[in-house]
Design a protein around this nucleic acid. Structure first.
Lengths: 152, 152
DNA sequence: AACAATCCCGACTTAAACAATGGGGATTAT
DNA sequence: ATAATCCCCATTGTTTAAGTCGGGATTGTT
C-alpha cells in the first residue's frame, strides 16, 4: 500500500515546477538537482507526465518543462495516475474501462470494502492541487527562513 | 498503491473464519481449498495473523484456526496491518513509533497531503469489521442462491 | 555553421519484493 | 500407533522497482 518513487518523485518535481510557474521552461537538470533525484530517472517520469498532458516540454538549448495548466488545476490524483496507474487498492475496483479480472465480482463481499477504500483515496487526492501545496510552501518559508527543501 | 496477495488472501481467509465463527477450529486446508489459495502459502499468512492475536490455533488432529475475537471486533485495518505492515502511502506518515526516515519532515509540504491520504485510508479500514462482511455475504446469499464464493 | 544545452527514446542492469514451494519437526484426537 | 494437523526455516522462481547507459533529435547562442 505504498507509493513508489515514481509517485513521490513526480509530486516533488511538479511542486518545483509549480513554484516556478510562469518563469518559462525549467531544465530538468535543475529540478533533479534541487530535489536530489537522478536526472536520467526523472527524465522518464517527465515523459509520462508530458504524455498525460500535465506538463509541456521545450526542446533545445534553454529548453525545459513547464506546467501545462495552472497549479490550481493540477490535482495530486492526476500526477499519481500518470505515474503509477489507476488509483485502486486492488485491480477489481479500477475506474479504467475494460478491467474485469475477477469473475466473482458480483458476489464478492470484500469488493465493497475495497471500493470504499478506493473512493476515500481518490477523494483526498482529487482535492489537493499543486496550488494548495505552493501556498503551504510559502507559509513554511515564512516560519523557517533557512530553506524550503521538501523531500519525501 | 496496491494491496499484495498477503492482504487480499488474508482478508478472504478471515472472512471464511468469520462465517464459521463458533464452529471450533477450522483446518487451514479447508480454507485454502475453498478460497483457492496455496495452503502452504496461507500457512505463512495465518502465522502472522496468529502472532498479531487475530486468530488462535489448535494443533494436532482436528485442529485448525479460529478467530480470537468476535467478528464485530476485528477490523480490516487489523488484518492489513498484520500482513502488510503499517497503513501508510509513504514511510514518513507511519503511525508506528521510531519511524523518522526523512530529515526534512518539518518543512515538507507534501507530507501534509500524505497524512490526509493515510488518515482517509485508516478511517475506512477501521470502520469495516468482519461482521459487516459476514452480513453482506448473507444478503448476497439471499439474492443469488447458487453459491457464495468471493474471490479478490 | 558550429556548438552546447537541452529534450527524447529504447535497451539494459541490479536489487528487492512478492509469491510461492519444500522438507522436516512437534502436537494431539482417534 | 497413526494420521491429521499446526509450526518453522530455508530455498526458489518471478515480477517489479529503480536506476543506468548510450545515442539521437532539436534549438538557442556565438
Amino acid at each position: 500500500m505504498k507509493l513508489s518513487t515514481k509517485g513521490r518523485y513526480g509530486v516533488r518535481a511538479m511542486i518545483e515546477l509549480a513554484l516556478r510557474y510562469g518563469e518559462g521552461p525549467i531544465a530538468l537538470k535543475n529540478v533533479a538537482e534541487s530535489q536530489s533525484i537522478s536526472d536520467h530517472y526523472l527524465e522518464q517520469l517527465m515523459g509520462s507526465l508530458r504524455k498525460a498532458g500535465l506538463v509541456v516540454s521545450v526542446r533545445g538549448a534553454q529548453g525545459g518543462y513547464m506546467l501545462n495548466k495552472e497549479p490550481g488545476n493540477i490535482r495530486l490524483s492526476n500526477i499519481i495516475r500518470a505515474l503509477e496507474g489507476p488509483i485502486a487498492p486492488v485491480d477489481c475496483v479500477t475506474d479504467e474501462p475494460g478491467e474485469e479480472i475477477c469473475e466473482q465480482m458480483d458476489t464478492c463481499v470484500a469488493r465493497g470494502a475495497w471500493l470504499r477504500l478506493r473512493n476515500a483515496m481518490v477523494e483526498v487526492l482529487d482535492n489537493i492541487t499543486l496550488q494548495d501545496l505552493v501556498e503551504e510552501t510559502k507559509n513554511i518559508k515564512e516560519d523557517e527562513t533557512d530553506n524550503y527543501m521538501y523531500y519525501i
